[in-house]
Nucleic acid binder design. Structure first.
Ligand code: NAD
Ligand code: NAD
Lengths: 214, 214
DNA sequence: TATTTGCTGTGAAAATTTTCACAATGTTAT
DNA sequence: ATAACATTGTGAAAATTTTCACAGCAAATA
C-alpha cells in the first residue's frame, strides 16, 4: 500500500466533516452509498478510501459513525494540539481569524503578524498580534509548523521566507502568488480569482461540465 | 481528444495568471520549462496542456507570451462580460468584494444579497446590495450565471436554491456545506477549515509530503 | 435450519493523467 | 553551407486514480 495520496486525504477530511455535521443521533451506522451521496462520490470510491484508514465496517451495519470519525481523526489529526500562525491582518486575515477560532479543538491560530502598527500588539478574535519582524523568532520559539498567508502579493514571498526560516512546513496561501519554498514545505494555494475564473468557465454555455470539487 | 479536463482548465488559468503577472517586457517568448518552473509542473505537462489550446509555439523562440495569453483567454474566457452575484455580505463576503472588484475586465460582481437590512439597499465596494428575497428575481432579470456563496452554513442550501432558481450555473461555495444542486450546475467548494486540516496534515512530521496545489 | 438480502473488502479492469522519448524544426556558430 | 543545439509537438509508455464485479458475510426472513 505505502502512502496515502493527497486526494484520498482530502476526501477523508471531507467525510469526517460531513459525519460530524450530520445529526447522526437517529442512526449510528452509515453505508458507503450514503456517505458517497453526501460527499458526491461513488460508493466504491468511499470504500476504497476507507480501506486506507484501516477501520473496517460490517456488511450488515455499515460503518459505525463514531468509530469512523475516530479512525479518520487518528490518521489525519496531529498527535497534540497545533498552533497556527497567520500573516496579514487585513480583510481576509480578519475574516479567517473570526471564522476559524473555536472551530477546532486541536487547531488554533495563536499568533498573527502584520506590518501595520495599528494592528499589532493587541488581541484580535482571541489571537495575539505581533509585528512581522518578529515572525520567525516567535514561531520558532513556539514550534509553529503551519502558516496562513493573507498579505498582499508583493509581500507574499518575503513573508513566506520568514515562515520557512521559522520552521513552518505547510502554508495555506491566499495571495495570488506562486510561492518559492524548499521541497519539503507543502503549499496549498487558494487564489480566489482563479477559482472564480474556473467557475465562470464551467457556468458557461459550453459543453464541458462536471459537478463537484474543492 | 474531445473535452478538456477540469485539471487542464485549472492549469491553463494558472498559466495565464502567471504570464500576466510576470513582467515580460524583457522577453517576449517563454519556454515550457520556464513556465513549468513558475507553475510547479514538468515541461511535458505544460506542453501537453498548451497543445489543447491550439496555439503552437516555435522550437526556437518557445511560446509568444502575448499570443499565448490571448489563446488561453479565447478558450477560457466568456465571450462577453459576465456579471457575478454574491450572497452573504459578512466578513468574508466583504473581503471578497473588496478584493475582486476591478481585478478583471470581463468579470464583475454586480449584485450582492443579504438578509440584514443594515447591509442592503446600498453600495459596497461599487456593488449594489439587495435583500435576499429578491435574489432569484434580480439575477434572472440580469442573466447572471455565476454565484459566490458566503452565507452561514445554515442558510447555504436555501440561498443555493434561490441561485439555481435564478438561473445560476456555477457556484463558488465558501460555506462548509455540501450543496445539493441539479447535475448541470457546477459547484466549487472552498471550505477553509478543510484546507487548514489538509495543510496541517502535510506539515506534520509524517512521511507523506507533496509540494504544490490549489 | 435454510434461504434470501444487501452490504463490505478487494483483486482486477478501466479510465484518466502524467511522463518519456524522439522526430521535426528553426536558430546560432563555425 | 553545414553542424551543433535546444526546443516543440506528440505517439506511446508509465503511473495513478476510479470503477467494476464478486466472494464472503452477518442479519433478516421463512
Ligand atoms: N484568496 C482569496 O479569497 C482572497 C480574497 C481576498 C484577498 N486575497 C488576497 O489576500 C491578500 C490580502 O488581501 P486583503 O483583502 O486582506 O488585503 P488588505 O489590504 O485588507 O490586508 C493586507 C494586510 O497585510 C498587511 N501587510 C502588508 N505587508 C505586510 C507584510 N510584509 N507583512 C505582514 N503583513 C503585511 C497589511 O498591513 C494589511 O493589514 C492579498 O494578497 C489578496 O490578493 C485573497
Ligand atoms: N471558506 C472560507 O475561507 C471561509 C472563511 C470564513 C467564513 N467562511 C464561511 O462563510 C460564511 C460566512 O462567514 P462570515 O465570517 O462572513 O460570517 P458573517 O456572519 O460575518 O457573515 C454572514 C453574512 O450572511 C448574512 N446572511 C445570513 N443569512 C442569510 C441569508 N439567508 N441570505 C443572505 N445572507 C444571509 C448575514 O447577514 C451576514 O451578513 C460562513 O458559512 C462561514 O462558514 C468561509
Amino acid at each position: 500500500m505505502s502512502l496515502i495520496s493527497e486526494k484520498t486525504i482530502e476526501r477523508l477530511i471531507l467525510y469526517r466533516g460531513l459525519l460530524l455535521q450530520a445529526n447522526h443521533e437517529s442512526e449510528s451506522g452509515i453505508y458507503s452509498h450514503q456517505l458517497g451521496r453526501m460527499a458526491g462520490f461513488t460508493p466504491a470510491q468511499v470504500r476504497r478510501d476507507l480501506m486506507q484508514v484501516g477501520y473496517t465496517g460490517s456488511p450488515a451495519r455499515g460503518y459505525d459513525i463514531a468509530k469512523l470519525i475516530q479512525s479518520i481523526s487518528a490518521l489525519v489529526d496531529p498527535a497534540e494540539k497545533r498552533e497556527i500562525a497567520l500573516a496579514g491582518i487585513g480583510s481576509i486575515g480578519r475574516a479567517i481569524l473570526a471564522y476559524f477560532q473555536g472551530r477546532s479543538s486541536l487547531l488554533e491560530i495563536t499568533a498573527a503578524f502584520d506590518t501595520d502598527p495599528e494592528k499589532t500588539d493587541r488581541v484580535i478574535h482571541g489571537c495575539r498580534c505581533y509585528p512581522v519582524d518578529r515572525l520567525s523568532e516567535i514561531i520558532l520559539a513556539r514550534g509553529i509548523r503551519t502558516g496562513i498567508l493573507c498579505v498582499p502579493s508583493g509581500a507574499a514571498q518575503s513573508v513566506t521566507d520568514a515562515f520557512v526560516a521559522g520552521g513552518v512546513r505547510g502554508i495555506l496561501n491566499y495571495a495570488p502568488t506562486r510561492l518559492i519554498v524548499p521541497p519539503d514545505v507543502y503549499v496549498e494555494n487558494r487564489d480566489m480569482i482563479m477559482a472564480v475564473e474556473k467557475v465562470v468557465y464551467f457556468s458557461g454555455p459550453r459543453t464541458g461540465q462536471r459537478k463537484e470539487t474543492g
